[in-house]
Amino acid sequence: MDDVLSWGTIFGKVAVQFVPVWIALVVTYAVSITFKRRLGLYGKLFDSPVGMIGFGIVMFWVFTALFADQIITFDPLAQFSGMKNKPLGTPLAGAGEADYAWFLFGGDHLARDVFSRMVMGARSVLSIAPAATAFAFMVGITLGVPAGYFGGRLDTTLSFIANLVLAFPVILLFYLLVTPEIRLTGIPVILAAILFLFPIIFLTILFNARFFTDPKKRNLYVGAVLVIGLWAYSGLAFNMDPLGVWSMEPNLLNVFVSVVFVNSPTVFRIVRGIVMDLKARDYVAAGQTRGEGPWYIMLWEILPNARGPLIVDFCLRIGYTTILLGTLGFFGLGVAPDSPDWGSTIDDGRKTLNLFPHAAVVPALALMSLVLGLNLLADGLREESLRD
């Protein structure tokens, strides 16, 4: 056990640690391919080799985040004596019977296990990027659909605000919004109070428009949205959930709100442009002739026909957000100073890059592979949506 493991042995042991992920991937692919003709655009994705590869890479990291506690070999924050800057496959010094015997991807400059930090970093990234992007889409759709459909002063005003935000360089704006000093001004809480209302507004309008002629269903769905939405809103925006189910750390709130604020104007402009094109279609005129309300036409006639471009942009935007989160972590503005998120880990490894590159290269490759998977997935979805 005193010798460093060979490359083949290292990757074999790594593969064993990822067994829950391999099983989940096999089950996902088997079920998806079996029923792909019944699964709409998602099912058609499995007709595209590029889309299948991208989907596999993305789901690998999704399942890694879900099963991280079973995959990691050590506490990602723990430090181990004698393991500082150790190379890949180094045996753990003084390992007990209950300890895993190896640092599979070596140790960093603080003697922490690089493999475990890489695995847990997937959870850090994927707990923020998709959710924040979804919030940004709800903001952009809620504002972009009426702006494109009605036009006029509403469109002019909202477009001016969006252009005002987009006038700032994205990285600089992002950097300013997540600095610790900004938190003292209360701006993140104000932004959260505004932006976190949009999912509630969007879902309320969506169900009200769909079930307007069926008051029982409308009241049920709208009531559920308001109760659950306002409950979550009180906890996420103000940390005032009496049951303690919904909460967000101040650093996480900073980052989350910043992602939503920076992405929303771009989503708004994309949605606005699509709606302006689709509102001239025959099925919209037919809906107006039938006497359907404008919100029903916007959300249940136009929006479903815009799903292809929006789904593609959603995947790409998660990739952009992942890179932004990595950039913030690299600058020391991540969720927490000792967070295992990939950006922070790359920054930690940068300090010893010339002598011990593994501490920075491993999380950098993980970040690169996730973004690559999202881009390939978006390409596959775009290819299949054009055939739809």
Score class of each variant (00 low, 15 high):
residue 1 M to L: 11
residue 1 M to A: 12
residue 1 M to R: 05
residue 5 L to S: 00
residue 8 G to Y: 01
residue 9 T to F: 06
residue 15 A to M: 04
residue 17 Q to R: 15
residue 21 V to D: 04
residue 22 W to I: 12
residue 22 W to G: 08
residue 26 V to G: 02
residue 29 Y to C: 05
residue 30 A to V: 13
residue 36 K to H: 10
residue 37 R to S: 14
residue 39 L to E: 09
residue 42 Y to Q: 10
residue 49 P to K: 08
residue 50 V to Y: 00
residue 51 G to V: 13
residue 51 G to F: 13
residue 52 M to N: 05
residue 54 G to R: 12
residue 61 W to Y: 15
residue 61 W to P: 05
residue 62 V to F: 12
residue 66 L to K: 11
residue 66 L to Y: 12
residue 71 I to S: 01
residue 73 T to S: 10
residue 73 T to N: 07
residue 75 D to Q: 00
residue 76 P to T: 02
residue 83 M to E: 09
residue 84 K to I: 09
residue 85 N to M: 12
residue 86 K to C: 07
residue 87 P to I: 11
residue 89 G to Y: 07
residue 91 P to A: 03
residue 92 L to T: 03
residue 96 G to E: 08
residue 102 W to G: 01
residue 105 F to R: 01
residue 105 F to Q: 03
residue 106 G to T: 01
residue 106 G to L: 04
residue 117 R to M: 09
residue 118 M to I: 01
residue 119 V to E: 07
residue 126 L to K: 03
residue 127 S to H: 08
residue 136 A to H: 03
residue 141 I to H: 00
residue 142 T to P: 06
residue 142 T to C: 10
residue 144 G to Y: 00
residue 145 V to G: 04
residue 146 P to A: 08
residue 148 G to S: 00
residue 149 Y to M: 04
residue 152 G to E: 13
residue 153 R to D: 10
residue 157 T to N: 11
residue 158 L to E: 05
residue 161 I to Y: 10
residue 164 L to K: 05
residue 164 L to V: 08
residue 169 P to M: 09
residue 171 I to P: 04
residue 173 L to E: 03
residue 179 T to W: 05
residue 186 G to V: 06
residue 186 G to P: 03
residue 188 P to I: 05
residue 190 I to H: 08
residue 194 I to A: 15
residue 198 F to M: 11
residue 206 L to D: 14
residue 214 D to M: 10
residue 219 N to S: 12
residue 220 L to W: 13
residue 221 Y to W: 14
residue 221 Y to F: 15
residue 221 Y to H: 10
residue 222 V to Q: 09
residue 223 G to S: 02
residue 229 G to F: 13
residue 241 D to V: 09
residue 242 P to T: 01
residue 243 L to H: 11
residue 247 S to Y: 15
residue 255 V to W: 03
residue 259 V to F: 12
residue 263 N to Y: 11
residue 266 T to P: 02
residue 270 I to E: 06
residue 274 I to D: 08
residue 275 V to S: 02
residue 275 V to W: 02
residue 276 M to P: 01
residue 276 M to V: 06
residue 280 A to P: 00
residue 281 R to W: 06
residue 283 Y to L: 08
residue 286 A to L: 14
residue 287 G to F: 11
residue 297 I to V: 11
residue 298 M to K: 03
residue 302 I to L: 14
residue 302 I to W: 09
residue 305 N to K: 07
residue 309 P to Q: 01
residue 310 L to Q: 01
residue 311 I to A: 14
residue 312 V to P: 00
residue 313 D to N: 15
residue 316 L to M: 14
residue 317 R to K: 14
residue 321 T to H: 07
residue 322 T to N: 03
residue 325 L to A: 00
residue 329 G to L: 00
residue 331 F to K: 00
residue 332 G to Q: 07
residue 334 G to E: 12
residue 337 P to E: 14
residue 337 P to I: 09
residue 339 S to Y: 04
residue 343 G to F: 06
residue 343 G to K: 02
residue 350 R to L: 13
residue 351 K to H: 12
residue 360 A to I: 05
residue 361 V to P: 05
residue 364 A to Q: 03
residue 369 S to F: 15
residue 370 L to P: 02
residue 372 L to C: 13
residue 374 L to S: 11
residue 375 N to M: 15
residue 378 A to N: 04
residue 381 L to P: 07
residue 381 L to C: 06
residue 384 E to I: 10
